[in-house]
Design a protein around this nucleic acid. Structure first.
Lengths: 124, 124
DNA sequence: CTACACTGTGAACTATAGTGCACGGTCAAG
DNA sequence: CTTGACCGTGCACTATAGTTCACAGTGTAG
């Protein structure tokens, strides 16, 4: 498919897709069909979905790129790949812990509002 | 307290604190002590902590300002406040679920690498 | 062949959230 | 009164993540 269809399927603007390409996040198929047009397949659609997911979790594009390259690129040793993935896993677990604290705080605030905002305002 | 102590307590740079002031997020006490120095109390420390938490939830500063202003105005009813907080709570729980999926994915990738990258690549 | 939709490029522009710097006034210890 | 820490202002700068634009080539339906 061309970039226009990828745009429609993914919901991302083509300018954004081109930015991702420049950042090394989404490389079109090699050929460019002689006319220079970028060509994509469903793997690219999946990839954009993964990028979006990672972004909503607070990862920056360059970190997402590093993450993806680590598991696609044969230039890293097994140990390096494992180290990279385990670093990300630690980050995810830290974020989970933060969110758990936030969840508690929000729940406390809701209770406090229900009590008529009396007593001590819950603190983060 | 002066801005320097607030900086030390909150962990935010004083330039950041001044930006928040310009954005209407954190107004110092009224007086400015005649010498022009900003004056803060512990309420300001709490407020900065709340701003930081809201940010980690993915709120933008202008949205945080709007929410806080509405809250303090008295222009929100108890039901509206509860609704706003419960929406945030839902968002937090959604993020938690996403992170759990991401955690599983990363753990699968680590296992896959340990197996020598044989078999199907884990998908998000 | 023409019209029009689609694609390419690079550069400039926007929005968000800060950070750093120069320059000058203020405060308090010695 | 001097020195050094602290504070004020404004402006310029950075980083991230896009968006918009002008201009040019391509593809295809009629």
């Amino acid at each position: 498919m061309n970039i226009g269809e990828l745009e429609r399927i993914s919901g991302l603007k083509r300018s954004t897709i081109r930015v991702y390409e420049k950042l090394g996040l989404l490389t079109p198929d090699d050929d460019r069909r002689g006319n220079g047009y970028r060509t994509y397949g469903h793997a690219h659609v999946d990839r954009l979905a993964s990028i979006k997911l990672a972004q909503t979790l607070g990862f920056r594009l360059k970190d997402i790129r590093a993450l993806m390259q680590a598991w696609e690129n044969g230039s890293m040793t097994k140990a390096e790949k494992l180290a990279a993935m385990q670093t990300r896993l630690s980050e995810v677990r830290e974020k989970q812990a933060s969110l758990a604290r936030l969840e508690t705080w929000l729940a406390d605030i809701i209770l406090w509002i229900e009590r008529g905002e009396t007593g001590t305002k819950p603190k983060p």
